[in-house]
């Protein structure tokens, strides 16, 4: 079974590389990965779906939590959470089949975002298995082109976010000379 990992991390260059590097170094293949800024633009939320051997899952989470840029890594696989994926699809269909395509799209809750003589562009969200079915059904109407977003997930139970406090810089035996608040350099 796939593991779903949710990470809150600093929105900094290299942060993504640290997380994926940790999985890559262990030879794990990432099934999907999504990342975007949170309401706080200094932070990103990442959802990773990855095939990790169950005995090693805790270890992977611990190693992720050790990364300096990661504020919190949690395993959502077996905890209350919801996961969704977005599919954008172009489906070609004959004039005769257009009505059936639309009906089918409606069943899956998909929205039409573009319509042309060749067919439709559709947008659907749902859990990944449901989207697999949707894609299979649409394929039967004609040639399709699909882009999937990968899974995004959110936990349903509040988790305490433990953050470290600021610390003074310098060698342990620093002098007490007052210095201006956190240094800014004006080039």
């Amino acid at each position: 079974m796939l593991q779903v990992i949710s990470l809150l991390l600093e929105n900094k260059p290299g942060a993504l590389m640290r997380v994926t590097g940790l999985l890559g170094a262990r030879g794990y293949n990432i099934e999907s990965l999504t990342v975007a800024r949170t309401t706080d633009s200094a932070l990103s939320r990442m959802t990773i779906v990855v095939d990790v051997d169950p005995p090693l899952r805790k270890q992977v989470i611990k190693q992720m939590n050790k990364l300096v840029n990661v504020l919190q890594a949690s395993d959502l696989t077996e905890s209350p959470s919801v996961a969704r994926e977005l599919v954008l699809m172009r489906v070609r269909s004959t004039m005769e089949a257009r009505a059936s395509v639309l009906k089918e799209a409606e069943i899956f809750g998909a929205r039409v975002i573009d319509s042309s003589m060749e067919g439709f562009a559709l947008e659907a969200t749902g859990d990944s298995e449901k989207l697999d079915e949707f894609i299979d059904v649409m394929r039967s109407y004609g040639e399709i082109e699909v882009t999937r977003s990968g899974t995004v997930a959110v936990t349903l139970e509040p988790r305490k976010l433990r953050l470290s406090s600021p610390v003074p810089t310098g060698a342990p035996k620093t002098t007490n000379t007052p210095t201006p608040a956190n240094g800014v350099i004006n080039a």
């Binding site: 991390l9 953050l163 470290s164 600021p166 201006p180 240094g183």
Partner: peptide
């Protein structure tokens, strides 16, 4: 140059 007196690494 103004010395940096505190650092903050929340994660």
């Amino acid at each position: 140059y103004v010395p940096v007196t505190t650092i903050h690494l929340p994660g």
